[in-house]
Computed example of a mutant assay.
Amino acid sequence: MRELVIDSIRMSQMNYQRVVVLKELETDLFLLIWIGPTEAEAIAVKMQGMTVPRPLTHDLLVDLVKSVGGSFDHILVNDLQNETFYAKVVIRVGEQTHEIDSRPSDAMAVAVRAEVPIYVADEVMEKAAISMDQETGAPVTQPAPGGEAAETNVTEEELQKLSAFTDLINELDMEDFERK
């Protein structure tokens, strides 16, 4: 299991869909998860420190768990099947730990409110994580034991599996990924 942080929320200029860009803390690997506009707004509102006059659904959920003596431990993006990501919200109540099935977008909206880590299963990272060359924006493999990253030779079949991400990756401005 690897820890990632929300790097940004982007909108595709081609179809106006939103995508959460997660970045692994220890590497330059990224995980892109398509989400709905409501969930994107719920995440962005909290990340930008905005206040709303009434609690949003995710605020209500966090307040409810805390009011009954529970606490949030972390969220986990635990599976990827047929281009659909799955997640769990992990809460503790007393000595018991509960894993609650969730859409990743809702789990991330809870995570930013509860200020808990976002983890991704190793298998999910192996299937869907991408790394991009800072200069060219081209996909690259993870560094070899010798240290240098090599360009990926991607087959046509692999490109088809990643088709949902192709337009977004082509639109990304890599300068936006640099931390200021």
Rank of each mutant, 00 (worst) to 15 (best):
P117Y: 06
P53E: 04
L172N: 05
I130E: 02
D176A: 11
N82M: 09
G69Y: 10
G147F: 08
A149F: 04
D63W: 07
I169W: 14
P145G: 07
F85T: 07
Q142E: 08
S131I: 00
I118D: 00
P37Y: 05
D79A: 10
A114K: 02
L159C: 01
A150R: 14
K66P: 05
L60W: 07
N82C: 06
P145E: 11
L22T: 09
R92K: 15
M50S: 02
E171T: 03
E156L: 13
K180P: 14
K88I: 11
A121V: 08
K23C: 01
Q96I: 11
D122T: 15
P55Y: 06
D122I: 10
E41T: 10
R103G: 05
A138G: 03
T38M: 13
V20F: 06
F177I: 02
E123W: 07
R2G: 00
R179W: 08
E157Q: 13
R103Y: 10
Q134C: 03
L60E: 01
M108H: 01
L32Y: 12
T97W: 02
A164S: 00
Y86A: 04
E24R: 13
A40V: 09
S71N: 09
T152Y: 10
K180M: 03
G36T: 08
H58R: 05
A164Y: 15
V65W: 03
L31V: 15
D28P: 08
S105C: 09
Q96Y: 12
T166K: 14
T84F: 12
L172V: 04
R54N: 07
D59W: 11
R113D: 00
E115M: 07
T152W: 13
P55L: 02
F85W: 14
L76W: 04
L80W: 08
A109M: 06
G137V: 02
